[in-house]
Design a protein around this nucleic acid. Structure first.
Lengths: 143, 143
DNA sequence: AAGGCAGTATAGCACAGGCTATATTCCGCG
DNA sequence: CGCGGAATATAGCCTGTGCTATACTGCCTT
């Protein structure tokens, strides 16, 4: 019986939430990268994914397998990797969020290079509400 | 032969960095929590750690073991857990960073509850440089 | 003082995400 | 056409972080 369903989350809940976010972070990165590769080169090859992610090729293969299991990507053996509709939608959301996070960091005075670096880790923990606040802040500021 | 030691990190480097951050994030959380428990109750028991982290007790025991291996904590079997000097210093840094991240999120318009939630994941990816920028921004703003 | 319960540790499992080494497949070129 | 190298997949290992089930300690209470 959940005794705090609608109230403020306690510490344990916050940690649990952060753990969940972390679990999907990698999938988000892969999906975004695959989308980029398809846009850039017309196709996403496992070797390119591995290279851009900075991991060994079998690691990329294994993770692509996980993307398939999660319904985010499709792939025929020895051929390229493609995004499902869900995968493409996720890629777009992730890309937009990434841009917003970088923009916000820069807006509060973080140097561009550092903003890009830190955004890679931060973005996965930015909720819809926080993202909306970021966008509002940026809009205000440029007005 | 590193060919980009001093230049802008490429995509693979950014991902590698994010992966490293993630690896220490849990240790940071444990150390901070142990510090809190000692401050609040005079001691940090494994059962309390597990409860506050939202994990099962053996998971807490295992992670405390890792903290010991990393030189951040000490513990005598069936007794409480204590922080080493390094652990206590880390706890203080983490706590300060957490406060700053929450304050920045609120300053750009994120609701308090959401700020607390998201900060839990975000803070581990905030570099020294970004933290400094956050502090400068907050100082400016309150002036 | 002894027994029992609460707290802690250990054992052993699963899964994710790394890795290297090796097998398999594809495809272009001779 | 077939062969060889490049790309991909598979096998098998390690570590980290969860879990449940079970063993062990320590301490309070009777």
């Amino acid at each position: 019986m959940p005794d705090r369903t609608a109230s403020a989350p306690n510490e344990a809940d916050r940690f649990a939430r952060a753990r969940e976010k972390q679990a999907v972070a990698l999938l988000e990165d892969y999906v975004e990268l695959i989308g980029d590769l398809i846009a850039e080169a017309g196709e996403a090859r496992v070797a390119d994914i591995a290279h851009r992610m900075g991991v060994a090729q079998p690691t990329a293969t294994k993770t692509v397998g996980r993307l398939k299991r999660e319904g985010l990507a499709t792939a025929r053996p020895y051929r390229g990797v493609f995004l499902t509709e869900a995968g493409a939608a996720l890629a777009n959301r992730v890309r937009a969020r990434h841009r917003t996070v970088v923009a916000l960091l820069k807006a509060v005075g973080v140097p561009e290079a550092t903003a890009e670096l830190d955004a890679e880790g931060i973005e996965h923990h930015v909720s819809e509400k926080t993202l909306a606040a970021f966008e509002a802040f940026l809009k205000d500021r440029q007005a």
